[in-house]
Amino acid sequence: MRLLSRLSVTVFRLAAFGSGLLTIAVFLMMLSFGWPLLTDGQFFTLLAGEWNPANGLFGIYPMVVGSISIAFLALLFSLPVSLGTSFVATVLAPPPVRRFVLGIIRFMAGVPTVIYGFVAVFMLVPFMREQITGGSGLNILTAAIVLAVLIAPTMIVFFVSGLKNVKPEYCLAVDALGARPVQKLIFLLIPQAWPSIVSGIIMGLGRAMGDTLISLMLAGNSIAIPASVSDSGRTLTAHIALVIAADFSSMEFKSIFACGLVLYIFTVIVVVALRWVSPGQDLRSI
């Protein structure tokens, strides 16, 4: 019996340490395959450099710009809508309706990304092409709009959990003072739930930066540095997916590991920021 329990502890520990080390192994793997690029040119010149394989330039600056502009634009579109929906789900709707609202949001989070992309290719892209941006319709704006819809449920879940966890005593006090629901929201709930709201924003940004399919399908994937939102752009994630088909030993191929490293470091920053904003936040519902 003692042997069995000692054995089981070893198994549990092995599983935990093994999968924890996996996280580090992913980083090391990317570092080792991207190494030639990191030693030939410095990492930072790579980040700031142009992409022109014909001249031996493998900078991923255009992709960094693409990723950042699409992600922030998506966040900009998504934030007000997500905040509004979370207000409905916590305060504005009558209680039975709140559950229904949350159910819809949870279902939206479960809709496969590829379906958003697929429908957008046949509905939004022609609309953008003919009515708004012209060109092919595949551009940063199109991708950002769809990405905004994609990240909304993630943010709403965070906002709702923050707004719901405000101390009931405070809520009762504010109710007793005769505040209208909106006043309660503005003067009590939002200030109290601030850390959760910030976490939700960080999480949304993380998802937007990490998404591959939407930008791959809708942003046009042009390698030039985008000058406006109606330009085609390529994200770091899409770059990885597009270059992987090339042959394995070229420098072009190595550059995708630099993209991977940038995304990895970005993820670490997101996790650190989340822990700093709200230590002990329940991250389960992501």
Binding site: F17, L22, T23, V26, M30, G210, T212, I240, L263, Y264
Partner: peptide, 27 residues
């Protein structure tokens, strides 16, 4: 440390995980 590592693993974009899997085949 472990929970920080799991948080990072949970947050990694799926393309990065795919890239890691691909590196595994190279390895």
């Amino acid at each position: 440390i472990l929970s920080a590592l799991f948080d990072v693993l949970a947050g990694l974009p799926s393309i990065v995980i795919g890239l890691a899997g691909f590196s595994l085949t190279l390895f």
